[in-house]
Nucleic acid binder design. Sequence first.
DNA 1: TCGCACAATGTAAACGTTTACATCGCATCG
DNA 2: CGATGCGATGTAAACGTTTACATTGTGCGA
Lengths: 333, 333
Amino acid sequence: MSRVLNNKGPVRDATSRRVRAAVDRLRYVPHIGARSLITRRTSVIGVLLPDLFGEFFSEAIRGIDRAARAAGYQLLLSGLHGDRAQTLTALRSMRGRVDGLVVMSPSVDGSTLSANLPEGWPVILLNCAVDGAAFDSINIDNEGGAAAMVGHLASLGHRRIVHVTGPDDNWDARERRGGYRRAVRAAGGEITRDLEVPGDFTEESGYRAARVVLGMRPRPTAIFAANDAMAIGLLSAFQELGVRVPGDIALGAFDDIPLARFMTPSLSSVAVSIADLGERAMKRLFAALEDGSRHVPCHETLPTRLVARRSSGSCSQKSPPLSRLSRTRRKDP
Amino acid sequence: MSRVLNNKGPVRDATSRRVRAAVDRLRYVPHIGARSLITRRTSVIGVLLPDLFGEFFSEAIRGIDRAARAAGYQLLLSGLHGDRAQTLTALRSMRGRVDGLVVMSPSVDGSTLSANLPEGWPVILLNCAVDGAAFDSINIDNEGGAAAMVGHLASLGHRRIVHVTGPDDNWDARERRGGYRRAVRAAGGEITRDLEVPGDFTEESGYRAARVVLGMRPRPTAIFAANDAMAIGLLSAFQELGVRVPGDIALGAFDDIPLARFMTPSLSSVAVSIADLGERAMKRLFAALEDGSRHVPCHETLPTRLVARRSSGSCSQKSPPLSRLSRTRRKDP
DNA sequence: TCGCACAATGTAAACGTTTACATCGCATCG
DNA sequence: CGATGCGATGTAAACGTTTACATTGTGCGA
């Protein structure tokens, strides 16, 4: 019976033993679905991610899972592939299955989201272009990180700095471009639309951007790529074309994926602890869950860290120190 | 009412419209949890993974999610950190929440698993050390892949080939060691316990193994690392110590993570399509779901592909071809 | 005109838990 | 000795759906 399994209400010791014996004998396991119907809590958190791809995603999940496990929650995962209808479907099928929601969707606009999100649900938005106080949110300091990288390049003497952008409909991309512009302006550098080469966060678009950049006159002396993947594409192209980095042109990027330090030359980038982002989001979600309906949404911005390596020309370090090795632990082959 | 939402039973057009109007007006959304109580299906698949870490895991999830989404299923994710009790807890809290299970757990033994798995549940085992016909299973051809890599090294003239192993309790690791031994024997090479250096799949253990290998007399001419992460550790150590690869010592590994081709020198490895593994598993699971109780468990082994790059000394290719670039697409920064 | 078949709709049981409440036995106290 | 209170246990309603079944309404052939 329910009272002995959950230690609720008074129950005599003998009875408890008798019940437990029967439970064992019949291999009875409670049906969690039925329980959550009456309890109105599922111990499940819904997680909506933009794309199930690459290090970024896996890091985010790792942080989220760590916090969830610690709090006794499970994760209902959904990777929404940018499609609006799919987002809606995913949201809908979460109803009645989850206690709260973590949504990371840099390319979905705020109104769509808030229109389809259930009223009273605890929701944490990660890196969403949603303004206002409607929901809790945690964002990466894209603007500050980008400005730091561009400032770093400027401090090395560069004044003609190209920015290879991310997609226009991506919130992170827009923020990073903003940081780029601010830093260029602050450094008294040149700021034109021509210096912004459109990309889409893929390696391939970086590869293509390389030729565009090399065609510019006078040739820019530095590039800030909006993410590491595009920087890798740029490096590949430069290597093929015999352009030396950072000798002929300096390069900085954003994300600091594990690959970055293994590139030749090693890639200067802006690091952000994605796992922390996820873990933090969950902690806030649990807090909101406790507070119930009387919860004031709050907004947080996670700082970034500039990692100067060889591609920006600031550092002559040859090999990575061992201390960083252990970070990339892989339990599974 | 249920009949109009699900298009079951006869219902007049006018009534249907009237009901739908009310549904819209009240913003009614069905409670999926309650529905699954009576229908006895949840449209959710439980996924148990060894560790939520790195490319390997994210690729697996990606394949699983792709197939699940296509079939209208959602994913209940759980990363079990090797702990037996946690595995049991995870399994238990899946009861009543999922229609089927995908379990990837290279370090859990078969008896533990089959003892705690519900009787009639459709379950697919990935890379598990579970023998017999109890459950469906899909495995990677670790043995064959390892043998291919070692054979590749032998064909380049190497006879004294070291194997840096994975953890002993890991099924993949044991299989790969078996492949190593078979290939060495077949090539008439030296086969001693001394040539097997213990590792644990981490970069750090690879780094440490490097010094062990360099201390051997006569010095081995080639190394087969049981996974890429350890090979990266080896490369770091060799670089620091001024040992040239493949000049002084050749190196081959296993997994072909995206990083492999960006290392200097680029890393020869054994590729396996993890995403395919996941997708395949889901398809089989759905098939089992259809068949109901009358389903014969079947076992499958996924082939691997040898990718010879510079670290093994077989190939002088300098930069990766563009065609491979698009594979590493990252939607999110 | 009266059944009759059949389509449309209303009704209630069922799924497997939790929990509020009723009941019962027992000891203590007036 | 009977009333009171309390700890232990039994009972049934509730959660939000689906579905089998009962009921009602309608047109049609006999």
